[in-house]
Design a protein around this nucleic acid. Structure first.
Length: 920
DNA sequence: CGGACGACGTA
DNA sequence: CGTACGTCGTCCGA
């Protein structure tokens, strides 16, 4: 298959709307995307063994030399097309598809030469081109795929198809074209002669030569015109003849289809912001090349796998081991959770199989067929401090091991402190520390990045049916177990690679002393869950649902009974900006914004009741959704067990999911009602009432900024325990602290918080609804008083630009390549991220240290109270009533001593039956 | 069914 | 033109 790259990319450009394909840097990509998806379709349909793409070059062709007006008068190439040919070539390079271009020739000549060469070798050739001149190449061996509807349909043209369509043979088609002319190439033909007449003449006289020999016979106006434009016709015929015997810089054999360079493809697609097509690329090539086991070659050093089916065999395997063992556990349901398919509340998955790897040996255990003895032996091995272990996702293993089903051979090991010990590495967490801003940390992703090897993801068929060890002659089962073994081997190899990199950047302590121990604490927190008052939650749902209905009815009434979907911004835009003809708001990708700020603006300007009703509807639906989400995630034990992701936030923070308990409303009274349903539950270890204890850091990020900047004024204020915002206000506005008004305090408060996000004077002015000048004035007097803060913030960015990364107090790095970007928007975004990352990240480090400290103290003092939630700067404990004072002391001590800063770490504690009551 | 998008909750 | 997240509904395409 040989493709005319330029003509197809250009077709694709017009087939897809350029405005829908634009990267954040402003580069259009519609032609690249369209070309690529056409290419994939062609590969799938035609299954070529060899493939190449031909391109035109800038150098004028021999045709232009023969005829100066060749292709003159064409419309200017649209600006949006700019750069897309080059990007298309880059994509081809990543796909390992050769691009061919030769100065002085057109892509079509290359296509023609290659097709001719291929046919001469006895191959069949497929020519993909939007240029009808290629029709002349068609014969028994050569077919042209010519785009019809955009580039979505490329019907094959063979001799019969040309005959049917034009009434001439492919060989005669260029003669017909010469008579008719080609506007696109600025080759005028005979006026008044279209393909019909041309075909009739050709049929009658056999060929163009025949026509010329009998030219005087041809009567009528058209005959006259022909005689007048004979030179044009001859010239056209000369120019539309494709060159079939060029010297090419490549042999046909060098165009054999091979695997894409996956890393290059990923890198390039990241830049092009191609996401959905990525998998299509890989699956298309895999299918075409039939090489699903491609990566297997690179495992030649993988030791043979022993299938372990008895505790004796396991003991024998362990006896030969004298180094850290990589342990992989296959957990059902798989950790990959999609939006519409989340695991049932309280289901932490079951371990179905274990596999192990060292440099010398690999082994696999199918738990579905394992004996109770073997299951126990494995559990004992995990709990045995003598064996160092390397794992992937310790937290998931701990949780699954804590709650195996009755029937499983594995004994339940509910104590996460002892169930898996001596874990020296968790490659999931190592991956996060090395690259905290990656999208995914699936084992296969890490293997791809760090080992440049493909890893099959275990087939979903393992979800059902038994993995039966006796059935090892069963192909599918054997393959599955082999995959598990390979996973363990990959964990082993990943660890070798990552260990070195962690050492190089001095981040071992972050892994071993912080993240790995924290994952044990988090496992415990998740297993514990938080108590819920279900009755009150039910009645909240009812109340909010009523509010939604009421607001919806009022909203419809206020626009004359028209029933639109209030949850659809698209439909709202029609109502607001067309039906009601309101002033336009901020632009979004798909139109004009209908967000809360915009609605408030519109309300001010128009005072239309619909706006008010819509806002009520939005408030109520949001609350109802939150309540419904909570109800849906209550587990059988009546509690909600959120999951903490330890690898989600690029700054080092945790995140909470299924459900997210880190964004439960708190600002409005209605929202706070939801906090009231999180309550102190029963403790399984004591028959005693419990209370919720909350403890949060006060102004943690400001304190970190004071510490890191070394600003004496700020430090002094914190040491004196002053009301920080009042103090700053008095400095900025040059008044006595007692004379600082609420408005002054609010302004400096907004500014102080904003600083850590890279707030601009423009942003500040908008937020405070003051003029930009006033905001600028405010910032400059702020920095006059607190100059070290300004110097610090500037220096953070400067250092980050120099090093390529920022660093937290514990050495957690965040890489920010965009600091070097030519694109101002990207660069400035990276600068703000650089400003914020050390501050937010250090705060994250601190509370993680505090969590370890608190958990350790609770255990050391043998308390029954339990940690149940972390919300970035807040820890929540469910405390047995007799332990309230002890727990309170632990919280305060451990949180305030998490680090020694130049300022005190103030911790506020509150208690109550519910989360709401425990707020202070 | 999955992704993009707008919207909005938290720190 | 303020950082970091997760979830929901809609809309649209595979």
């Amino acid at each position: 298959m040989v493709i005319d790259g330029h003509s197809m990319a250009y077709r694709a450009f017009f087939a897809l709307p350029a405005e829908n394909f634009q990267t954040k840097t402003g580069q259009h990509t519609n032609a690249v995307y369209g070309f690529l998806s056409m290419l994939l379709a062609m590969i799938r349909e035609q299954q070529p063994t060899h493939i190449a793409v031909a391109f035109d070059t800038e150098v004028p062709t021999f045709r232009a030399e023969q005829y100066a007006e060749y292709k003159a008068g064409r419309d200017k190439t649209p600006d949006e097309f700019h750069g897309q040919i080059d990007l298309t070539k880059q994509v081809m390079a990543a796909l390992n598809i050769p691009c061919i271009e030769v100065d002085g020739f057109e892509a079509d000549d290359i296509v023609a030469t290659m097709a001719t060469q291929a046919a001469a070798q006895g191959w069949t050739a497929r020519v993909v081109s939007g240029d009808r001149d290629t029709f002349q190449l068609i014969d028994d061996n050569v077919t042209v795929l010519y785009p019809m509807r955009g580039v979505s349909e490329l019907p094959p043209f063979d001799a019969a198809a040309i005959e049917e369509r034009y009434g001439v043979s492919p060989k005669q088609y260029p003669e017909l074209a010469a008579l008719v002319g080609e506007t696109a190439d600025n080759l005028p033909g005979v006026p008044g002669v279209g393909p019909g007449f041309a075909a009739r003449w050709l049929k009658k006289y056999g060929s163009l030569q025949g026509i010329l020999e009998n030219i005087d016979e041809i009567g009528g106006k058209k005959g006259e015109a022909l005689r007048e434009h004979l030179d044009d016709v001859k010239r056209n015929r000369q120019l539309n003849a494709l060159v079939t015997n060029m010297e090419l810089p490549i042999e046909l054999d060098d165009t054999e289809m091979v695997n894409p360079d996956r890393n290059l493809v990923s890198e390039l697609f990241d830049a092009l912001e191609f996401n959905t097509i990525r998998d299509r690329v890989f699956t298309t090539f895999e299918k075409e090349l039939g090489n699903a086991d491609d990566g297997a070659d690179q495992d030649h050093d993988m030791p043979d796998t022993k299938v372990i089916d008895s505790s004796e065999a396991f003991a024998a395997f362990l006896a030969a081991v004298n180094e850290p063992i990589a342990v992989f556990s296959h957990i059902n349901p798989p950790a990959t959770v999609t939006r519409r398919k989340i695991p049932a509340p309280g289901d932490y998955g079951q371990i179905r199989a274990f596999s192990f790897a060292t440099a010398q040996a690999t082994a696999v255990i199918d738990l579905d067929s394992a004996s109770r003895e073997l299951g126990t032996a494995v559990a004992d091995f995990l709990a045995n401090d003598q064996y160092a272990k390397v794992v992937y996702d310790l937290k998931a293993m701990l949780k699954a091991l804590a709650t195996p089903p009755e029937s499983a051979p594995l004994p339940a090991r509910p104590d996460v402190n002892t169930s898996i010990v001596n874990v020296t590495d968790d490659v999931l967490l190592s991956g996060y520390i090395l690259q905290p801003d990656r999208r995914g940390y699936e084992l296969a992703d890490l293997v791809q990045t760090y080992l440049n090897t493909r890893l099959e993801t275990v087939s979903a068929t393992s979800n059902q049916g038994q993995l039966n060890i006796e059935g090892l002659d069963d192909d599918a089962n054997a393959k599955l177990l082999a995959q598990y073994a390979r996973n363990a081997w990959m964990i082993h190899r990943l660890n070798e690679s990552m260990d070195g990199q962690l050492a190089q950047r001095d981040a071992e302590s972050l892994l071993h002393d912080l993240e790995i121990p924290l994952s044990v604490v988090l496992a415990k927190v998740e297993l514990t869950g938080i108590g819920i008052d279900r009755q009150r939650l039910d009645s909240l749902l009812e109340g909010f649902t009523n509010e939604v209905d009421k607001a919806e009815q009022s909203a419809f009434a206020s626009i004359g009974g028209q029933e639109v979907n209030l949850a659809s911004p698209k439909q709202l835009q029609v109502v607001l900006f067309e039906t009601l003809d309101m002033p336009k708001t901020r632009k979004t990708k798909t139109g004009y914004s209908t967000d809360a700020d915009s609605l408030a603006d519109l309300l001010e300007k128009t005072d239309h009741p619909f706006l008010h009703n819509l806002m009520s509807y939005r408030d109520a639906t949001k609350l109802r959704q939150t309540v419904q989400g909570l109800l849906d995630s209550i587990a059988d034990d009546g509690r909600i067990h959120t999951r903490f992701s330890q690898t989600a936030a690029a700054t080092g923070r945790l995140s909470s999911l299924n459900p997210n308990l880190q964004n439960i409303p708190v600002r409005t009274p209605a929202g706070r009602q939801i906090r009231d349903i999180f309550v102190a539950g029963s403790n399984p270890h004591v028959d005693e009432r419990t209370t919720l204890l909350t403890a949060d850091y006060s102004q943690i990020e400001m304190r970190i900024m004071a510490h890191m900047s070394g600003d004496e004024g700020l430090i002094q204020a914190y040491q004196d325990g002053e009301d920080l915002h009042r103090f700053v206000g008095s400095q900025v506005f040059e008044v006595e602290p007692e004379d600082v008004t609420t408005s002054m305090r609010d302004k400096v408060k907004a500014m102080s918080y904003g600083l850590a996000y890279g707030l601009s004077s423009f942003g500040l002015s908008r937020q405070l609804r003051i003029s930009v000048d006033e905001a600028r004035e405010l910032m400059s007097s702020y920095f006059d008083r607190f100059g070290d803060v300004q110097r610090y913030l500037r220096n953070v960015v400067r250092q980050a630009r120099k090093d390529g990364y920022t660093q937290t107090m514990l050495g957690r790095r965040r890489y920010l390549p965009d600091l070097q970007s030519d694109n101002r928007q990207l660069r400035e975004m990276a600068e703000r991220a650089a400003l914020n990352a050390p501050i937010q990240g250090s705060a994250a480090d601190l509370i993680k240290v505090a969590m370890l400290g608190v958990q350790a103290r609770l255990e050391k003092e043998a308390l029954n109270s339990r940690m149940i939630l972390q919300v970035h700067d807040e820890l929540i404990l469910e405390v047995v009533d007799s332990e309230i004072e002890a727990a309170e002391a632990i919280l305060i001590e451990e949180m305030s001593s998490a680090a020694t800063l130049k300022v005190p770490l103030d911790v506020q504690v509150g208690k109550g039956y519910s989360w709401h009551e425990a707020a202070h």
